[in-house]
Simulated scan of single mutants.
Amino acid sequence: MAKFIQRYSPMPWISLREGKDFPQKEPPGLSPFEEISIGGAFIVARDNEGRGYVWGNNHRGQCGTGDYGYRSKPTIAESLLDKYIVKVAAGYQHSLFLTSEGEVFGTGRAGNYAFGSISLQATTYKACSKKLQQVEVKNIIDISAGQNHTLFLNEDGLVLAVGKNEYGQCGQVSTKKYIVNPIDVFLPEKATMIACGTKHSLVLGESGKLYAFGCKFNGQIDGFRGGIDEEQSSPLVVEIPSDSKILKIYAGFDRSAVLMENGEVWTWGGIDYRYLDGEFFEKMTLLNNLLPKQAKEDVIDVSLGYMHTLVMTSA
């Protein structure tokens, strides 16, 4: 009843739950975005009022609008207007929204269980959901989406994974090609941070140790490129050649990176496309050495592209 009143009241700014104002459907103008996540030709975003948006390709229902029509501009997630969105994530063809109550809602391609076993709203080859549906997880504080898998971090420091697992990117033996429902990832300690690449996963433990699992063919697990093994089904401790503490972790495409407390950025992995002048690292590389001298110790954030890296500095 409280949610009904909050959503349809002529005074929707009045909060009825936990001191948070439910977002209004029609803000006076597009509010500033606080977070964006880029998927396969579509974008998921969250504004500073707790509203979620999606736009771009929608042929798999990744915009959650109930159809497959392309969206050329930010489209509000209307079905979540009675929720306060605190985190968004985009996979290759699926979108995820995390609410302030620890709930997760997803839409898009689901035939590979990228965000769990849900009731498919299309019986065609699309095998997708056209509308946002709740994922069977609770008390979640962080989410991250890979190409066809998703990681969840709950308030107890437990990591859960679901989706395609052909390389062990869900932390399970690779003979389990799909993880149908979110399952615990065995770790020797509680986790504090998660990150998904295309087909690999990173987890930061509360001790400061970094764990990685999934596809390792392009050096994205621990910087080692070569050998005959392409998979790492169980979490592997990754040794960072630094005395500093890990501050943030990053995974994107077939690449990984960490930002240390002392400002160091270590990165590794990537498909070897030297003939295209593509960026990749055959071993762990201190990215600061490639930056202008004045920016070497002022890095505050990193983003990993397919064959390039963006670095944000405080200057």
Rank of each mutant, 00 (worst) to 15 (best):
V237F: 01
V185T: 11
Q121S: 12
Q133T: 14
R46T: 12
T65N: 07
G116C: 11
A191I: 04
P74M: 02
G157D: 12
E282C: 03
D222I: 02
T285A: 02
D156L: 10
G64H: 09
N289H: 14
D298H: 07
C128V: 09
A191R: 05
K138G: 02
L151H: 09
V237R: 00
K209A: 03
W266N: 03
V173A: 06
A257H: 01
A122I: 08
C215L: 15
L247V: 01
P27A: 11
M260R: 09
M312F: 09
T267A: 15
I38N: 08
E239Y: 00
K131E: 15
I76E: 05
G146V: 05
G214P: 01
M11C: 11
S95H: 04
Y275A: 13
C170W: 12
A195V: 11
Y68V: 11
I85H: 01
D184F: 07
I183P: 00
S95G: 04
L276A: 10
Y53L: 11
K177Q: 14
I76Q: 11
D301C: 04
E206T: 13
G146A: 11
A191V: 08
R60T: 05
G214V: 10
E264D: 15
F281W: 15
G40R: 01
I271H: 01
H149R: 04
I85W: 02
R225W: 08
D47M: 00
F281M: 06
D156V: 03
P32M: 07
G223A: 06
A295K: 09
I14E: 08
F97Y: 15
K296P: 00
G205T: 05
N58C: 07
N181P: 01
S314G: 05
D277L: 02
L16Q: 03
